[in-house]
């Protein structure tokens, strides 16, 4: 049986073979890749593969989308400072939520770092009861 390849595998493979290529080589490789997709009947999924590829490439380049939630507006300097803790190329999206009282909540792609006063209070309440 022919092994099925997933979208993620295609995207990663494309990234691996194209990283250090330029000009003519690049277009030759991309051409080869597209004909492989055609052979595997995967052309319909090209869009999806491309978006996964973009995400993967960003991740490899150290770019990291961050959502920073705080109780009041943070200055640009503060946001950059928070971003730098995670990555040099962090893309910070600030959010304001009065409900968290104080502190910050930083959300990356699949993790939440919760340093808000609301959560601390909830934990204190749990500890006292």
């Amino acid at each position: 049986m022919k092994k099925k390849r997933t979208t993620i595998q295609y995207a990663r493979a494309l990234y691996e073979i194209t990283t250090d290529l330029k000009g003519k080589d690049l277009s030759a490789v991309v051409h080869g890749f597209v004909s492989m997709l055609a052979r595997d009947h995967k052309l319909k999924q090209a869009h999806r593969i491309l978006s996964v590829f973009m995400e993967y490439a960003k991740e490899r380049a150290g770019e990291m989308p961050l959502t920073v939630t705080s109780a009041r507006d943070l200055s640009d300097r503060e946001l950059v400072k928070i971003g730098n803790i995670f990555s040099k190329h962090a893309e910070v999206t600030p959010l304001v939520d009065k409900g968290i009282i104080g502190g910050v909540i930083v959300r990356t792609k699949d993790k939440i770092f919760d340093a808000s006063i609301r959560t601390q209070l909830a934990r204190l309440k749990k500890q006292l009861t």
């Binding site: 919760d114 959560t119 934990r123 500890q127 006292l128």
Partner: peptide, 20 residues
């Protein structure tokens, strides 16, 4: 008692793995 409990309370950043 409350003061004692609160003084031993450690501030901690909760790290949670999330999905959508």
């Amino acid at each position: 008692e409350l003061k004692k409990n609160i003084s031993v309370f450690e501030k901690q950043v909760e790290v949670e793995e999330v999905g959508t």
